[in-house]
């Protein structure tokens, strides 16, 4: 009983502090009106969630989150911000309750849905029992790839991944066309401190 506090694993404490920081960053993003600060904070949010994914052993998801969330989408949002405004418009007060209602209803529905979820690492969960079990058993014999996720993505579902790559390539082309080719090497003059403030 005396050693109870020492049984808390350090990884749990790391997870707790990562989630706390995620919450703080999310609140700060909501409250800030400087769009540049919001973009930087969303990059930090992606880095934090990538670290959290690593602690959940989802290394591939963490890779994607760090590359797309912290890298590509930060740059894309900056490019978009330079084309529009640097500060968010103040909200119309009469539209606030509807938006707040929608957000809270969605959040409550999502939290309600987590009640049905199987426990973390449950061997009888649908994700682990049928197809997942087969992948775990067959992969070492079928494909000489030690990482099962890689084997599933690149071999078992190879055509699916090819289609996804095509979709992402098309989306990237569309974004480049929208933002303009020159925007990437612009070096435009920008500051998140407004003239009237100073």
């Amino acid at each position: 009983m005396t050693s109870y506090h020492f049984n808390v694993s350090p990884i749990l404490l790391v997870d707790l502090s990562l989630l706390t920081m995620l919450l703080l960053v999310a609140v700060a993003m909501l409250r800030s009106r400087h769009l540049f600060a919001v973009v930087m904070l969303s990059g930090i949010y992606s880095l934090l969630s990538a670290a959290f994914f690593v602690s959940l052993d989802a290394v591939d998801v963490a890779f994607t989150e760090a590359a797309v969330g912290a890298g590509v989408s930060t740059v894309l949002m900056l490019a978009g911000m330079l084309l529009t405004a640097r500060r968010e418009k103040p909200l119309e007060p009469r539209r606030v309750p509807i938006a707040r209602l929608a957000v809270f209803a969605t959040g409550a529905a999502l939290i309600y849905a987590t009640i049905d979820m199987p426990a973390f690492g449950d061997p009888n969960a649908p994700a682990n029992s049928y197809v997942g079990q087969a992948y775990v058993e067959e992969t070492p014999g079928d494909i000489a790839v030690p990482n099962i996720v890689t084997a599933v993505l690149a071999s078992y579902r190879g055509f699916d991944t090819l289609g996804e790559t095509l979709v992402i390539f098309t989306a990237g082309l569309a974004v480049i066309l929208l933002l303009g080719v020159g925007s990437a090497r612009g070096g435009r003059e920008v500051s998140d401190i407004d003239e009237e403030e100073t």
Binding site: A62, T74, A184, G187
Partner: peptide, 27 residues
């Protein structure tokens, strides 16, 4: 993985800084 993150982080910072010619705020 940590090494790859370091690469991504470096590239992202360079990409962000490419957008700005930094201007000192008034005052």
């Amino acid at each position: 993985i940590a090494l790859l993150y370091a690469l991504i982080n470096f590239a992202a910072t360079i990409a962000i800084l490419r957008f700005f010619s930094y201007r000192t705020p008034k005052g």
